[in-house]
Amino acid sequence: MSQHAGSPEHESLSAPGLSTLLRERGAATWAAATSHPMVAEIGAGTLPHETFRFYFEQNIQYLHCYVQGIALAIAAAPDRASQATLARFLIQITDVEIPANLTFLTRLGGSPDRLPAQLPTTRGYAGHLLAAAGSGSLPVALAALLPCQWSYGEIGQRLAAGGAPPDPVYADWIAMFADDGYDDLVRASTGLLDSCAADADQRAAEAAFDAATGYELAFWEMAYTRGASDGGA
């Protein structure tokens, strides 16, 4: 029997996944985060190095909490396939992004041994991730974790399409998120959320995703203002 455009079978096949629904409901905040002035200046290679160094000083500390959040999500994963996807996610952070962040910080004149205190946005974002990931619900954990990974993939792809900036620090940072391997990981992670959507408390997932997207925007603003948006320079 053929499936008609109005049939329930067709609708179920074409219906957007939970990841798409979550992103669409927070589209304005998502757009503000991924097109933030700091992102634009990274793409142009015009961001002051001092500002990028400030970003890495906070982001390194955030990423350590992000690792803990992914580990909690792995603990909530129901099967080996889910665990394998999340293990790839974890390795990307521990073996690629944290070492790269440490290298970028050093290239910009900073020191991993002299990191400043976490600012309120960094602490708040980390606390949100750990609370959501520790809820025991894999969909809620993923909803909190995905805005970071997913938005950086989008940023990397868009900035790379505009051509590499002349400053190698910015060109190298963009390249880290623009390659096909990163895009494949994003698809795997969003696909995992979609596959476990039937087990989701959708309101809790929406709240987790919305809060994380808001924190992404706040984190860019915090770094761009070198802490002024958090109440101190």
Results as ranks from 00 to 15, higher is better:
L18Y: 10
F219C: 00
R88D: 15
T190G: 07
L145M: 15
L115E: 08
S135V: 08
A31C: 13
A40G: 09
N59T: 08
E154F: 10
I91E: 12
S12A: 15
S19N: 15
A233P: 12
Y62F: 14
M1V: 12
S189K: 07
Y66D: 09
H36F: 03
N101F: 06
L130R: 05
S111R: 08
E9C: 15
L193G: 02
A100W: 04
Y215M: 03
L102F: 05
A233H: 13
L142D: 02
A141G: 14
A33F: 14
T225D: 00
D179E: 11
C65H: 12
A77L: 03
A81C: 11
A178M: 09
Y66C: 15
H49P: 04
A171F: 07
P116A: 10
D199K: 15
T46S: 12
Q149A: 08
P112V: 06
T190I: 12
E216K: 01
E221R: 00
A205S: 03
Y182D: 02
D179L: 13
M1G: 04
Q118F: 11
D184N: 07
A218D: 00
T106A: 13
G110M: 02
A160M: 14
C65W: 06
H128P: 05
S151F: 14
A212I: 14
L21Q: 15
A44C: 11
A44V: 04
G181L: 02
D172R: 07
E9L: 13
L86I: 01
M38H: 07
G227T: 03
I60F: 02
T122S: 07
